[in-house]
Design a protein around this nucleic acid. Sequence first.
DNA 1: TTAAGTGCAAATATTTTGCTGTCAC
DNA 2: GTGACAGCAAAATATTTGCACTTAA
Lengths: 148, 148
Amino acid sequence: MPVAQTEMPRHLQAQLADRGVRLTEQRRAILQVIETAKRHLDAGCILHLARRVNAAMARSTVYRTLHLLKHHGLIDELDLLHLEGECHYYERELEKEHIHMACLRCGKITEFVSELFHTLKNQLRRDCQYHLVVARLELGGYCSECRH
Amino acid sequence: MPVAQTEMPRHLQAQLADRGVRLTEQRRAILQVIETAKRHLDAGCILHLARRVNAAMARSTVYRTLHLLKHHGLIDELDLLHLEGECHYYERELEKEHIHMACLRCGKITEFVSELFHTLKNQLRRDCQYHLVVARLELGGYCSECRH
DNA sequence: TTAAGTGCAAATATTTTGCTGTCAC
DNA sequence: GTGACAGCAAAATATTTGCACTTAA
């Protein structure tokens, strides 16, 4: 019996193309940076990394592209409790939505997947009278190495 | 049989005094603004309202006092999904921790209390290996008037 | 008395915008 | 070919800091 298929993660590039969004060299560079990121990146980091691919990249192009991706729901914007300045961090939207826990001393970020968070979101979606679009749960505390 | 008493909400002023924090005219004005707030205030609003009490109040005093209160755990800092610029909003820390739901179109903020959120926090506290200090859940979507 | 707090102005950090030239489709 | 996009520089927004003066305890 065929099972309902959840949307497979595909290249951001393909997802944008599907939506008729114009693909420029600059956008491709930024998408590549986001897809291959090994940690949470802010706009400045994305610019820095994207310039390795396209040296002339303007800072405003990064901001405009992040805005585009966010409004298409392809990336999530995080604050990570503003541990380092006030910038935002970006990561690819994934099926298994996760919770970010930041260490208030060393800045380490740990990600959790929680079935109960999923249940909570469903309950809120049912009860809150809103058409729920984003749910951001960010935690702060002290990690095992930093707490005394 | 006496029941364990949860800490009653008291004047922020008294809580600061307990901690040996110096009380100035400026701090008292800011505390009063926060305690009597009827909506979520950002630093600019707090400055504006505090100047009704103390006309010479400097913007930097507001920021320094908010920092102080936040580090004493007496207020919570919210982002409300950055609906209006990038500023932060502040509210008094209350026993019944609540969730903020922001309408992405009209900007209305609705607050929820959820038993399940409380349970989730307890589960995370137990499982996450961190000493949990803050948990911020912010939701975005479209309210009943704004969704089509 | 004196360490801590304040006001002011300047600095910093992050993000947005106007405009002109360029490129993807 | 043309409407959307990029680069650049300047503006806007939010917050922090250095320093000299003032004040709470």
